[in-house]
Design a protein around this nucleic acid. Structure first.
Lengths: 206, 206
DNA sequence: GTCTATACGATGATAGAC
DNA sequence: GTCTATCATCGTATAGAC
């Protein structure tokens, strides 16, 4: 995956770099915010760079100076997503594993646009040459590893149901979470994502 | 959702319509077959109408005579998908519910391109104006209703674990199935979709 | 270093000739 | 029905103003 047309990558203010003022970081932030909003609304392919540039109050060329390609902009938006909804990883040993997951799922209901963006991109990025592929590959691995580690701890404490494989249960949680959120996006009135997740966790934990 | 540039919609031979010979149905079938193959290979946005037309041995204009828009072609491909892998619905009372689902999941591993297409489209189509939205809305409702009905029968036979809600379990199966297939598309070597599904069903059924 | 202006090839869509 | 223009818009690339 190509990246890094400029320095910092994510978009933090880089006070140590190059001269008295660095408007670049702020401009990049503006662009990412608008791209984030438009991607969440219309999807990745449904949003044009000209649209995003206009929303951020600049020309197309200026946007492309900060982000060399639409792909670069996408990975910046994904990084921004992690920034905003951090706490997805499980702090080991802190509080109830199930409560933590359900609470996060409930919080997700406040940001349907973001969930939709994530769902769209995670499926779009399956194709071999997609710029977001590496991001989702790493993210799934990380989530499964986190959950499997937590479930292994619970198993050793005798709180995992007999015969349940922590690795399979971890993949199940990730899969169920994404799948039920997708159904919720279609029919929010008839799907309760948090309740469905809780129902599975109650089945597996004791 | 716009649709129906011509008559039948799906692509069946329409012998009663308009004149002695109806090449239209066959032409439409050729187009849908090639579009199906290319969508499954390169994705929806990755395939151009010119490509599809060339693969079907005709010009762009000719293809667009049969399908007024790329959206129309998409819904035809989705309908074709249901045609080919019918049996997704559960024949009531026939054989084991769990075996049926697991067997279907195993068969899906032979058509990864199609699974990828389905995953991409199901997420893309969440946006309000997407041409495939109604298709997936109806499909999720149908699947959940089928599974819930089957699970209710099993519950009345005392074969559903105590405390499990058939409706929630039905939504869980659909969600888990789609979610685990997506993970499998990313890392087929470390994910066993059929086994993961079986693991959940074993947990719920007795 | 930041930005505007302009152009390129490819896309989905449309109109009209045969 | 099938075809060949033709169109606006897409992502991208480059030249040059300040």
């Amino acid at each position: 995956m190509r990246s890094d047309p400029k320095e910092g990558d994510v978009g933090e203010a880089s006070p140590t770099r190059r001269g008295p003022y660095a408007k670049t970081a702020e401009r990049r932030q503006q662009i990412v915010d608008e791209a984030y909003r438009l991607f969440a609304t219309r999807g990745y392919h449904g949003s044009s760079l000209r649209e995003i540039a206009a929303a951020a109050g600049m020309s197309l060329g200026s946007l492309q100076y900060h982000f060399g390609s639409k792909d670069d902009l996408l990975v910046a938006v994904l990084a921004r997503r992690d920034e905003l909804s951090s706490g997805a990883a499980v702090p080991p040993g802190a509080g109830s594993f199930a409560d933590h997951i359900v609470a996060q799922a409930e919080r997700n209901e406040d940001i349907p646009g973001l969930i939709a963006l994530y769902s769209v991109l995670s499926a779009e990025a399956v194709t071999a040459d997609h710029p977001g592929r590496d991001y989702f590959l790493g993210r799934y691995d990380l989530l499964r590893a986190d959950y499997a580690a937590e479930l292994t701890v619970l198993r050793d404490a005798g709180r995992l149901r007999e015969g349940v494989d922590p690795a399979i249960a971890a993949a199940t949680i990730v899969a169920l979470w994404e799948g039920i959120q997708l159904q919720w996006l279609y029919t929010p009135e008839s799907i309760d994502a948090a309740k469905t997740l809780r129902s599975y966790l109650d089945l597996v934990l004791t």
